[in-house]
Simulated assay, not measured.
Amino acid sequence: MTRGERGTHRWFLVKVFFMVLLCLCDLGLNSSLEFDDFVGSNTDDDAKNILVLMFGLQMVIQISIFLTLFLMMGDTYLFRVGLLGVLAKQFTGVLLLHPLYIGYTMALGGYRVTEMHGDTTVAELWTLPGFTPLSVIHKIVAAVYYVANLRSTIKLGSPLFYNKDAWVNLYYDSNRDSATIEQGGGGGGRRRKMV
């Protein structure tokens, strides 16, 4: 490895560590916001603002996860030469999952904070109409979200995404394969251009 490659590799490892740390923080907040009583018996508005702060922290963490993934994609050869469509095609699932998960978290968190800013306790939260199924679906989507982000992070560790020659060869191979088709049998087939 050259000195520049070692520096790039270290920077990639820092982003991987940061991605895992952010996912763990979001997991921790998902595990506690709906189950722990942060307010206790204190019912004044200042004490209830902790709920809004925790919800805001969760939103900041989820946006940071997206930005970290975007920074990792920004280091790829495809991103640097402007082939964003090709890069997005490689990560379509996780890129679509981010707005879905962030939107769902905002809706559920807004519902939770609004109810708990009233006199609803954590125990009463689970008796609210529709809250339990919404929370269960959110946790399932969260699990898919964590797996998708970690798989994309691992996929971005492949040297293929940083190698110009590999993408140029893939491009020429795909154009050659789509421009001609094999006709006839055996080894003496003719090639014909596709229209």
Results as ranks from 00 to 15, higher is better:
Met1Ala: 08
Met1Val: 09
Met1Ile: 05
Thr2Val: 03
Thr2Trp: 03
Arg3Lys: 09
Gly4Asn: 07
Arg6Tyr: 05
Gly7Pro: 00
His9Val: 07
Trp11Leu: 15
Trp11Phe: 15
Trp11Thr: 07
Phe12Gly: 02
Val14Ile: 14
Lys15Phe: 02
Val16Gly: 00
Val16Tyr: 06
Met19Asn: 05
Val20Leu: 07
Val20Ala: 09
Leu21Gly: 13
Leu21Asn: 13
Leu21Pro: 05
Cys23Asn: 07
Leu24Thr: 07
Asp26Thr: 08
Asp26Lys: 01
Leu27Gln: 06
Asn30Trp: 10
Ser31Ile: 04
Ser31Thr: 04
Glu34Trp: 14
Phe35Trp: 14
Asp37Ser: 09
Gly40Met: 06
Ser41Ala: 13
Asn42His: 14
Asp44Thr: 13
Leu51Gly: 02
Val52Thr: 14
Val52Asp: 03
Val52Leu: 11
Val60Ile: 11
Val60Asp: 07
Val60Trp: 12
Ile61Lys: 01
Ile61Trp: 03
Gln62Phe: 06
Ile65Ala: 03
Leu67Tyr: 10
Thr68Pro: 01
Leu69Gly: 03
Phe70Met: 09
Gly74Asn: 06
Asp75Tyr: 04
Thr76Leu: 14
Tyr77Val: 09
Tyr77Ile: 08
Leu78Cys: 04
Leu78Thr: 03
Leu78Val: 01
Phe79Ala: 04
Arg80Pro: 11
Gly82Lys: 10
Leu84Ile: 11
Leu84Arg: 10
Leu84Thr: 04
Val86Lys: 13
Val86Gly: 04
Leu87Gly: 02
Leu87Gln: 07
Lys89Leu: 09
Phe91Trp: 04
Phe91Arg: 00
Leu95Ile: 05
His98Asn: 10
Pro99Gly: 04
Tyr101Trp: 03
Ile102Asn: 01
Thr105Met: 07
Ala107Arg: 05
Thr114Leu: 14
Met116Ala: 08
Gly118Asp: 03
Asp119Gln: 14
Asp119Tyr: 08
Thr120Asp: 06
Val122Asp: 04
Glu124Thr: 05
Glu124His: 10
Thr127Asn: 08
Leu128Glu: 05
Phe131Asp: 00
Pro133Glu: 05
Val136Gly: 02
Ile137Ala: 15
His138Leu: 12
Ile140Val: 06
Val141Gly: 02
Ala142Ser: 10
Ala142Met: 08
Ala143Leu: 06
Val144Asp: 00
Tyr145Glu: 05
Asn149Met: 00
Arg151Val: 11
Thr153Asn: 00
Ile154Trp: 03
Pro159Trp: 04
Leu160Ala: 13
Phe161Ala: 00
Phe161Val: 00
Tyr162Ala: 01
Asn163Ile: 02
Lys164Val: 05
Lys164Asp: 00
Asp165Ala: 11
Ala166Trp: 04
Ala166Gln: 09
Val168Asn: 01
Val168Thr: 02
Tyr171Ala: 15
Ser174Leu: 12
Asp177Asn: 13
Ala179Thr: 13
Thr180Ile: 15
Ile181Phe: 15
Gln183Asn: 15
Gly185Leu: 05
Gly186His: 14
Gly188Cys: 02
Gly189Glu: 12
Arg190Phe: 15
Met194Ala: 10
Met194Ile: 11
Val195Asn: 12
